[in-house]
Amino acid sequence: MSLDVQALRSSLAGPFDFHVPSGRCLAITGPSGSGKSLLLRMLADLDPCEGRVSLDAEDRATMSPTTWRRRVALLPARSGWWADRVDEHFASRQADERGALARDMLLADRLFDQPVDETSTGERQRLALIRALLTRPKVVLLDEPTASLDATATLAVEAVLRCRMQEGLIVVLVTHDAAQADRLGDDALVMRNGTLVRP
């Protein structure tokens, strides 16, 4: 399985061409405003774009958008919430699995009973990652996933990602943290003015 991107472009960024094999992480760094988040949104099919994106040789254009987004999960820098309480964003049948993931990411179980407004930015980032992983995507697109976390929590999140990558998960990681890009990335690219270049 692999993620293949060919001539992907929008009016604001691109064209992008790259390939990420199963179980690997592509780390993308670059200055703010260079187009990193735009690239992730295009991969997630949230913004109109041209070009070809395929997963395991299956063209995105041939899949329904809901099928594609179940396979390719985006975690934006600011996580989105639509109900008042944290547990309203999770299926109750997944309580055990979400609890295990929460402990792996150093989160307390009681967080699930709290209003979203009473959680910190770092807690919300990890909760959103748990929510995405529970849908068992084949690709995760991470936009600064540990920007609000301390060093210990950051390493815990990275350990969870590494574990999932061993099971075949493809990760596209956007980060300003060069050390994190080195730790997680199997391949690295730099975004400059809307195009990807080798570092």
């Binding site: 949230l46 179940r70 985006l74 989105g80 639509w82 929510r131 849908t135």
Partner: peptide, 22 residues
């Protein structure tokens, strides 16, 4: 204002109709 919540639901594989229902 609800953009992040709507797109978060879309990213979980929900349809646009489901995501905008609230």
């Amino acid at each position: 204002l609800r953009r992040e919540g709507i797109e978060a639901q879309l990213m979980l594989g929900r349809s646009f109709r489901e995501a905008t229902a609230p």
